[in-house]
Design a protein around this nucleic acid. Structure first.
Lengths: 152, 152
DNA sequence: TCCATAATCTTGACCGATTCAAGAAAAGGC
DNA sequence: GCCTTTTCTTGAATCGGTCAAGATTATGGA
């Protein structure tokens, strides 16, 4: 099981993606990229390291941070910082979606940008400001925690 | 200069605000509240401590955190966490405004909620989600940094 | 006015997330 | 297959913030 077969395909794909991005293809990078890809997103560095380790064996946390930085810079991965949580990573889909964060359990859910081309992208600011991006974070209770909450 | 005169008025006001909020009136609390109030907002705990110290003399960083937590819980102060920055504090104005952050210099500017009653408050989420708040952060370049930037 | 009590403040240790630094390993071009 | 440069490993350090324990102090009642 080295060059073909079902198990190796995701890895070959990861390698291809790295190569296309002009990056060196290394085991840690493939492993982390795979971990981010098949996770459904929103995992922190330590969790990703753990998952990547299952794929590639030993992997330092520092390397995980290095790889995530490199992947983010290359546009393959998107990082999101949520107040009170460590940085989360997900596959970059270039759709500028937002996030809903449950105040009770901390779970994160993607939220499509409400009105197509982002109404939030046009702040009431003087002309001289160069607004490049709008990050919206919705806070509240997810269905599960809402049901379990004392008052509603 | 103990009970009247111009210099003591802000302090008397701070004491009054604390009392109204049902909080004990202490020197650290008055000092921090004053520091937050006349700063124009968006200062971090350490800077606020420094400024509060000028008013009240000795003040530990831990006390500053305690006070800020208490003031925030009491609704007198609003805290904002911006990715890559320590928590910032400003006077709570109950207007749910947002923030513009300059990627170059880190400065923060208030942004009124674009379309009145917050268009961002209505995410495309299933009914079962209880969305309580939407925090919008605009990223870009402030006028000064934009002018200094290599490409525009 | 003074006291008792509970809240608050000070000091100092501690923690999680992340970065810095230096040497070892390995990817990729010739 | 070697050489150079990038990347990875290990270990220390930093930053923002919290925990814990004992000293102070604000406030309500005697």
């Amino acid at each position: 099981m080295t060059t073909s077969g079902t198990a190796d395909e995701p890895m070959a794909l990861a390698a291809e993606r790295l190569r296309t991005a002009g990056m060196r293809v290394t085991a840690p990078r493939m492993a982390v990229l795979m971990a981010v890809s098949d996770s459904g997103g929103h995992l922190d560095a330590d969790t990703l390291r753990e998952r990547a380790q299952r794929i590639t064996g030993r992997l330092s946390l520092q390397a995980t941070y290095n790889v995530l930085r490199a992947l983010t810079d290359a546009g393959l991965v998107r990082s999101t910082q949520i107040a009170g949580h460590p940085t989360r990573y997900e596959t970059e889909r270039h759709d500028n979606h937002h996030h809903f964060v449950c105040r009770a359990c901390g779970s994160i859910r993607d939220v499509e940008c409400a009105v197509g081309a982002a109404p939030c992208m046009e702040p009431r600011l003087p002309e001289e400001y160069d607004t490049q991006e709008a990050a919206v974070t919705f806070w509240g209770l997810c269905p599960g925690c809402r049901a379990a909450a004392p008052v509603s």
